[in-house]
């Protein structure tokens, strides 16, 4: 079997051949499209290390069959920054020490971007913690992560208001 899918990957149109229906989006990104920023942790949807945005919504790439994604828009950690300008969530993670070893960080950041877009956590730390519960950090950097998401959420909301004014 060989199946062709078209993706918009980090803003760029890509035609991809899938030679085996068992290939997940995670393996497609890491092994075939040279985008290893998305991490494989549990490979079972439990740790969140593989979080990417699919059509603007956060999802576990390890549980998605790539064959089903024709036409999808995928954003990975590699697609967040604009050149040297970090995404506000990336910048806030650095400012607030939102990581230690860094392995879960791409997933944490993509999940935070998705959570902020969902719009109902705001800057309430309890809602942020609950909204981020699909991302496990073995180093236990949760305090910094919560502060980073709070800060990024505030800045992005302020910028939106500024842009609207």
């Amino acid at each position: 079997m060989s199946l062709f899918i078209s993706l918009t990957l980090n803003g760029e149109a890509r035609d991809v051949s899938i030679d085996d229906p068992r290939v997940t989006l995670l393996d497609l990104l890491r092994e075939r499209l040279a985008l290893p920023g998305t991490k494989k942790g549990c490979d079972r949807g439990q740790c969140g290390a593989c979080t990417v945005l699919v059509n603007g919504r956060r999802a576990n790439a390890c549980l998605m069959l790539a064959a089903g994604l024709d036409g999808a828009q995928i954003t990975t950690i590699e697609g967040l920054a604009r050149g040297e300008d970090l995404h506000p969530v990336q910048a806030a993670f650095i400012e607030h020490d939102g990581f230690q070893c860094g392995y879960c960080t791409p997933g944490q950041i993509m999940s935070a971007v998705g959570l902020i877009a969902e719009g109902d956590a705001g800057s309430d730390p309890e809602r942020i913690r609950e909204g981020m519960s699909g991302n496990i950090c073995r180093c236990g950097a949760y305090h910094g992560i919560t502060l980073a998401v709070q800060e990024a959420s505030r800045r992005m909301a302020a910028k939106e208001e500024g842009d609207a004014a």
């Binding site: 969140g48 576990n60 999940s111 998705g114 699909g134």
Partner: peptide, 9 residues
């Protein structure tokens, strides 16, 4: 139930 990611899927 589940996590934000899983609920989207």
């Amino acid at each position: 139930g589940a996590s934000g990611q899983l609920r989207n899927m």
